[in-house]
């Protein structure tokens, strides 16, 4: 998708909220948008999502898009599952498929018990889970998250972080705004700031070298089948590995992959489903590069391994 000289103002003679936005939105990327309250972040996200039409310039090459608003008022006469099934169909899924995926996503967010609850009776957090599930169930190519984490419990926030990484691993693009500066820290490929109606590129994306170390990271030690070098894995289908890991040689001929924690599940999945599959030796949190007096919570050395680790990894040092 491309934004060419995009501007937006409300009313014919209103002030420009945004102007002269030129942006090539890449595939397989996580874009963070920052800015103060009222700077035009939400307007930009609505343009990204295709909900608003630019007053100037044009947006071309729109992929399949989904949007999560910051607040989702459940004043709709549906149950959670009913609403998600309707939205799944609107996103282009077939009815039974939509209902199945709606159930799966509610379960993933720990809201399966509320599937038959009318939306009007849901708590704010559970409504937000429904709003997020609505966007994720159709596997959109472009996912636009406007402070989607607000109101979610910590468990659901982690699920959303991982779902974002999965979208990117599948070749999608995720654009997000969040007031927590540590949200998906170190995982964003590019950061932008909206100020004075302009979109400015910020330093500090994961691809910009020096800033890579920010945010919790996970080290995966994996062993390829004889003859499968990590370089070949990297070439898999011409795609980058999820999270663009740093690949170094580990002990005993293993390969050590260091990746932002949020991408670890997606990377493990890519390794285990590669042909031939890789064998996972260990998964551990990388030592935090942060200063000890930092307020940041250092991730405990628990593995970020998913429950569905390949059977070969049973001797991996997982506690």
């Amino acid at each position: 998708m491309r934004l060419d000289g995009v501007g937006r103002r409300y009313g014919v003679s209103g002030p420009w909220v945004l102007r002269d936005v030129h942006l090539e939105v890449p595939a397989r990327a996580l874009l963070r948008v920052e800015g103060t309250n009222g700077s035009g972040k939400s307007t930009l996200l609505r343009l990204f999502a295709g909900i608003d039409r630019p007053s100037a310039g044009r947006i071309t090459g729109r992929p399949r898009t989904a949007y999560v608003p910051e607040r989702f008022p459940g004043a709709l006469p549906f149950t959670a599952l009913g609403y998600l099934t309707h939205l799944g169909r609107v996103h282009g899924l077939r009815g039974p498929d939509a209902a199945r995926r709606a159930g799966e996503w509610l379960e993933r967010f720990g809201a399966a018990g509320h599937a038959r609850t009318p939306l009007a009776n849901l708590s704010k957090g559970t409504s937000q889970k429904v709003a997020v599930a609505q966007a994720l169930l159709a596997r959109p190519e472009l996912l636009v998250l406007d402070e989607a984490w607000t109101g979610l419990d910590p468990g659901a926030r982690d699920v959303l972080d991982r779902a974002v990484a999965e979208r990117i691993a599948d070749g999608g693009t995720v654009v997000f705004v969040d007031h927590d500066p540590r949200r998906l820290e170190g995982a964003a490929d590019a950061r932008y700031r909206v100020a004075d109606g302009r979109l400015l590129a910020e330093a500090g994306g994961a691809v910009s070298g020096a800033a890579v170390a920010a945010g919790p990271r996970v080290i995966i030690e994996a062993e390829g089948a004889p003859g499968s070098a990590p370089d070949r894995l990297r070439e898999r289908g011409g795609q980058e590995l999820p999270g663009a890991p740093d690949i170094t040689a580990g002990p005993d001929g293993t390969t050590r992959l260091t990746v932002p924690a949020v991408h670890s599940d997606a990377l493990l999945r890519a390794l285990l489903t590669a042909r031939p599959p890789w064998h996972i030796r260990s998964v551990a949190a990388a030592p935090s590069p942060a200063t000890p007096d930092d307020q940041r919570i250092t991730p405990a050395p628990t593995p970020n391994a998913p429950a569905h680790v390949h059977p070969h990894s049973d001797e991996a040092p997982l506690p």
């Binding site: 295709g50 909900i51 399949r64 949007y67 607040r71 989702f72 004043a75 609107v90």
Partner: peptide
């Protein structure tokens, strides 16, 4: 009939 937030969700999928 639809709250603006819900309308936005459907509009992103198919166009307003």
């Amino acid at each position: 009939n639809e709250p603006p937030a819900a309308r936005s969700c459907a509009a992103a999928a198919t166009g307003p």
